[in-house]
Design a protein around this nucleic acid. Sequence first.
DNA 1: CCGACTACCTGCCCGC
DNA 2: TGCGGGCAGGTAGTCG
Length: 298
Amino acid sequence: MPELPEVETVRRGLAPVLEGAVIRQVKINRPDLRFPFPDGFAERITGRIIHALSRRAKYLLAELDDGNVIAMHLGMSGSFQAFPVEQGGGEPMGRFHHPRSTDPQHDHVVLNVEKADAVSSVIYNDPRRFGYMTLLGRHEMDSHPLFARLGIEPTGNSLDGVTIATLFAGKAAPLKAALLDQRLIAGLGNIYVCEALWHAGLSPRRAAGTIASASGKASARSDRLAEAVRDVIGRAIEAGGSSLRDHRLTDGSLGYFQHSFNVYDREDMTCARPGCDGTVRRIVQSGRSTFFCPACQR
DNA sequence: CCGACTACCTGCCCGC
DNA sequence: TGCGGGCAGGTAGTCG
């Protein structure tokens, strides 16, 4: 599922429930996701207060009051949903499968949290288990292997034509691969790379090093690409991400950016660019589908 | 170092 | 209806 816009959507959905909440109970339904949970994971986060829920690239970060950070990656199929828990009667805090969970088989982690006397269950579901969670010290963030080599965020103003020209200078790899490389720009995935290249009118097969001017500085191409990336990511976040298959917001509703796709999953359809009569093609690059219009993406 | 490829895991969809 | 193959939003590890 999730690229940066989906993770940011999850963060915005969970923040009101988690920020300022105390973790009352943690249930881990299996020893591992993609990687084993750290030793004592459940015990070490139980009783902690979550000061802030932030995001770096495709990682969700729960910053705890003891200086540790829970880093969570959703892999391909991870999702969170938050449910209010009725209090009084029964033992709601002890419940693992929430009655409203639609896929209890893959509910791997349940956090019961309390904030202002309201109790919520926050459930992590992940059928393919490519996601993972770990716990690290706040001050380890810059040196930790998961984060040390992450590139710049594609949001805000940090990504401009100069930056992207510099990052891609001398690269023989195709633009598609360079944009997916988390060490250069962190947070893009298959969908939004395809969409950004379409908006920029650039071929996914073009060598990344060729978007700079002859002197290696920013060019019309690098400016266009930087703007396309920022614009696609920004609009996708506003739309609540893209809901393919199973991606849902934390309240169970659907994002709607998939209705704004111009090339992704549109093989054989006519190019959406006004005045272009090209046909969207699907090719495979480094083992992954790329969708693009050969007529207007050069 | 770079770039291409494989593996990880489950579910779904399509064609036969 | 059942079955095999291909495909899926990510990335760590390996290999040339």
